[in-house]
Design a protein around this nucleic acid. Structure first.
Length: 409
DNA sequence: GAGTTGAAATAGCCCACATAGCCTT
DNA sequence: ATAAGGCTATGTGGGCTATTTCAAC
C-alpha cells in the first residue's frame, strides 16, 4: 500500500478499498469496482493524505487534508494549536459515484489537491454513472448513524489529552445530518443483515447503517461459531470466543494502524457488543494497553464510518487477513457507546475487572487447537520421518521416526 | 525514568507427499 | 453427458530460526 495505485502502479492512489486492501487511483477504482456486482459493493473511502497507507476518516478543513485515524490523532490529538481544527468525517462509499455524487458525499472533494487537478478532475468526470452501464445502479454511502458521539471523545478517554472542540451545537458531520434527500445522491446503505442484538429496535438506530455486505459470516449462526452467546459479551470475554473464531494476531496498542481504531471502533461493533468509554473503567484501558495479543476484528471506521468489514471472514479465516485495523478484545466487552462516559458504577467496574483478570488468565493458558481437516494427511504426517523437523524423502536418512523414534544414523 | 541485556515466549517457515479438486480430452 | 487422466494446490507436524516481549539490572 502506498503512494502509487496498487492496480496500475502509475497514478497516485487516492482511494482505499478495504475489501481489496488496496490503494487505488480514481480511474482504477472505477474500473475495478465496476467489474461485477460484488466488487461494486466494496466500501471505499479516501486515502489518508499524510501516511498514504490508511483509509481516511476525517478531513481537516483547516489544513485541507484527509487523515486516517492515527494521523488525525497524531496531528490533532495532542497539539493544542491544531486540536481546535474543524474536522469533517469522511463517509465510505460503494458503487460508482459520479463526480457530482462525490462532491455531494464530500463537500470538500474538489478541495483535495489531487482531486482538483486536471487529471483527477477528469477522472472524476469520467466516473459519472451511466444508467445503462455495468456500474451499480446506485452508489452507497456506507456510514453509521452512531456518529452522533464525538469521535474524539473516546480518544480523550484513552489519552486524556484531546482538546478537540466539542460543540453540541456544531454537528461535526454536517453533510450527513441532512440525510440523503437528494435522489441523485448515493443512497445510504441499508443493511439486510442485522446483528443479533437482543433489542434490535434499539440498536437499529445506532447500528442500522452497518455495512454488512461483506460479511461472509452468517450471523444467524454466529453463536454456533463462537460457541457462546455473544450477547453476553463478558462471557465471550472469558471464553475468548473471538480469539477462537478468528485466531489472534499481535497488535500492539501503539500500532499505528490500530491505536486509535481500537478505541473508537467499539462503537461500531454491533456484532459483539460494544465498548465502554475507557475512562469509566480503568481495567478496560489497562486491558487494551497491556494486552499484547489481540483478536483482530476489522471493524472499519469510527462512529461515522461504521463499515463493519468482515471481508473474507470464515470460520477458518486468519486474523492476519485483516491488516488495516484491529479491535481489542476489550471492545467486545462493555457497555454500549450510549452509556454515559465516566459514570461510576463500582459493581460493574468490579465485575469487569474480575472478568478482565479471568480473561487474562484464560488467555495465558489457552491453546488454540488446530482443526485437522484431513485426518488421512495427519495420519501420514504423524508417521512421516523427519530431519530436524522437516519431512524427508522416503528412503533418505532421517533423524526422527515417529513410529520407532529411532535414528537412521 | 531511561537504557541495556538476557531469557522466555511466540510466530512463521521448511520439508515430502497423498489427496482434493479442477481442467482437458 | 459422463468417465478417465493429467495437473496443481493444499495440508499435515516437528524442529529450527527470527522476532517480540518482559523482567532484571
Amino acid at each position: 500500500m502506498g503512494y502509487i495505485c496498487d492496480f496500475c502502479g502509475d497514478q497516485r492512489s487516492m482511494v482505499y478499498c478495504r475489501s481489496d486492501a488496496a490503494c487505488l487511483c480514481l480511474s482504477c477504482d472505477r474500473n475495478v469496482h465496476s467489474a461485477n456486482a460484488l466488487s461494486r459493493r466494496h466500501s471505499r473511502t479516501l486515502l489518508c493524505e499524510r501516511c498514504n497507507a490508511q483509509p481516511a476518516l476525517v478531513r481537516c478543513s483547516e489544513e485541507r487534508i484527509t487523515l486516517c485515524q492515527n494521523c488525525d490523532w497524531l496531528g490533532h490529538g495532542t497539539s493544542t494549536s491544531s486540536s481546535t481544527h474543524k474536522r469533517q468525517t469522511i463517509n465510505c462509499y460503494s458503487g460508482c459515484p459520479s463526480a457530482e455524487e462525490f462532491s455531494s458525499i464530500w463537500s470538500f472533494a474538489l478541495d483535495i489537491p489531487s482531486m482538483g487537478d486536471s487529471t483527477c478532475a477528469q477522472e472524476l468526470g469520467l466516473m459519472s454513472i451511466n444508467e445503462n452501464s455495468s456500474c451499480a445502479p446506485e452508489s452507497q454511502i456506507v456510514s453509521g448513524s452512531a456518529q452522533v458521539t464525538n469521535i474524539h471523545g473516546i480518544n480523550k478517554s484513552w489519552a486524556g489529552a484531546s482538546s478537540m472542540p466539542e460543540s453540541s451545537s456544531e454537528p461535526r458531520i454536517p453533510d450527513q445530518s441532512t440525510g440523503p434527500t437528494n435522489e441523485s445522491l448515493p443512497k445510504l446503505y441499508c443493511p439486510s443483515t442485522k446483528g443479533p442484538f437482543p433489542c434490535e429496535d434499539e440498536h437499529d438506530d445506532l447500528y442500522g447503517d452497518f455495512d454488512m455486505d461483506e460479511v461472509d459470516l452468517n450471523l444467524e449462526n454466529y453463536e454456533e461459531l463462537f460457541g457462546v452467546a455473544l450477547s453476553h459479551s463478558e462471557e465471550l470475554f472469558e471464553n475468548g470466543g473471538i480469539d477462537s473464531l478468528f485466531g489472534t494476531k499481535d497488535v500492539s496498542a501503539g500500532d499505528s494502524n490500530c491505536q486509535g481504531a481500537a478505541a473508537a471502533e467499539g462503537s461500531s461493533i454491533g456484532l459483539v457488543n460494544t465498548m465502554q468509554p475507557a475512562c469509566s473503567n480503568a481495567a478496560s484501558a489497562d486491558s487494551i494497553l497491556s494486552t499484547k495479543t489481540e483478536p483482530v476484528l476489522c471493524f472499519t471506521g469510527r462512529q461515522a464510518q461504521s463499515t463493519l468489514s468482515f471481508s473474507g471472514v470464515t470460520g477458518e479465516s486468519s486474523a492476519g487477513d485483516h491488516q488495516d485495523c484491529g479491535a481489542s478484545s476489550m471492545l467486545l466487552a462493555g457497555e454500549p457507546p450510549w452509556c454515559t462516559p465516566c459514570t461510576e458504577n463500582s459493581i460493574q467496574s468490579a465485575n469487569r475487572s474480575n472478568a478482565v483478570l479471568r480473561y487474562k488468565e484464560k488467555k495465558k493458558t489457552r491453546k488454540f487447537e488446530k482443526k485437522v481437516r484431513y485426518a488421512s494427511r495427519k495420519a501420514r504426517a504423524d508417521v512421516r520421518r523427519r530431519v530436524k523437523g522437516r519431512f524427508v524423502k522416503a528412503g533418505e536418512a532421517y533423524d526422527y521416526d515417529p513410529l520407532s523414534e529411532t535414528r537412521s544414523y
